[in-house]
Design a binder for these strands. Structure first.
Lengths: 217, 217
DNA sequence: GACATCCAACTGGGATACAAGTAGGGTACG
DNA sequence: CGTACCCTACTTGTATCCCAGTTGGATGTC
């Protein structure tokens, strides 16, 4: 999730950025609500200037839309965006598997064994949020194989942005818990063998089954 | 290149952003030079506030690094960034070919025939910049196959950011003009047949040959 | 001449002041 | 009662002001 905790050394603009972002992810600031620079500045005990900078960044990242002279609206992801994000993450995960050097690949299963166990536990105990975080980390591991920080930062932004819609569509997973786990083990197997073609196809299938065209996990 | 022309309706911050960005791409603001908010504000006849917003955005996009109380430095791409960008663009182009629906694939050769001819012309006449722009459009076409605006916007940002280093490494191409064209035709062939595995491998090769690990074209 | 110190002139970060535009409600008029 | 209008209370966008931190050169000292 990488909700960067408000560091003491950070600038006011950074604090504002992470505060607003966290509030949206928590559901504290609901989709469709209008954000006022004045209001935010007051609650954060700072002036409008850093708040404004934060909102601009949040717009670049897709969290809000700023309407001139009217305000910043907390955006919903459109169906298209959800699909496009899934396809983009697919591309990055596949590229990670494709570029993985053998040493990294072999360590992968060991590194993810614990994660998979805990996924199962979360599914059985009905811990939606816990499962979501674990699954996100699981998928991220494939991108990490590429040893490419640029891909990772792009991937992280897409995944974070989708966190809410992932939570929302979680029930679909919980109806057939074993299938999701099986799909994950399947992906891991392909990745470990370095079979990126099979991986890509399995990931297509996984994305499809998990939620029509929703998030990836 | 998409150097967004300074629109009259745009805000001062937008004007500042596109002005500075264009100046860097033109080589007017050289890598390593220090930008002063005051100075930029003066030449653009506006206050520091919009300039400041523009510089912040440019930092997010990787063009400059802002040092507190010192100024904004026009950044050079590190070798790592060049490599990582090439790998990321590789992932997106391959994904485009993979996701292309047959109808789009078939139109591709026709759509790029003219481009390829003009590439050849630019190579023969020694028009470096012209060739660079054409080659960038050529590669972009593969991403367009995915019909995914998110991928495209990510790709565009990477490609723009790399424009200068592409120009710089152009001479390597001009030493063996026929090879570059042949590689492009080869890529196009794989794409048209929908053979994304072969496409990915050929693109690896193409990137390697064009410039060790430099830009993609 | 080499080095430490200090100071003045910068820098960007943030707060505040002002300008310009929007939306919505109250009011006057038909 | 319906409608057009206007005015007020908001909103963001930009300009200006203040502050703290950095830097590099001038100065004094050894």
């Amino acid at each position: 999730m990488r909700v960067s905790l408000a560091q003491q050394g950070a600038s006011a603009a950074d604090r504002a950025h992470s505060h607003i972002r966290a509030a949206i992810m928590r559901g504290d600031l609901t989709v469709g609500s209008m954000l006022s620079e004045n209001e935010l500045a007051a609650t954060l005990s700072m002036s409008r200037t850093p708040v404004r900078a934060a909102l601009t960044r949040l717009q670049d990242e897709g969290w809000v839309t700023i309407y001139a002279q009217r305000g910043a609206l907390v955006r919903e992801l459109t169906a298209d965006e959800v699909r496009e994000s899934a396809e983009t993450r697919h591309a990055l995960e596949s590229a990670g598997v494709r570029r993985a050097d053998p040493a990294r690949r072999e360590g992968l299963a060991a590194r993810l064994a614990d994660n998979l166990d805990r996924q199962e536990g979360a599914l059985l105990s009905g811990d939606v949020q816990g499962f979501a975080v674990l699954a996100m980390r699981f998928h991220r591991a494939f991108v990490e194989l590429a040893a490419n920080s640029m891909m990772l930062s792009i991937y992280d932004r897409l995944q974070d942005r989708q966190y809410l819609s992932i939570l929302r569509s979680a029930d679909r997973i919980f109806r057939e818990p074993q299938q999701a786990i099986a799909a994950h083990r399947n992906l891991l197997g392909h990745a470990q063998r370095g079979d990126w073609v099979a991986f890509a196809e399995a990931l297509d299938d996984h994305q499809e089954r998990s939620h029509g065209l929703d998030a990836t996990w």
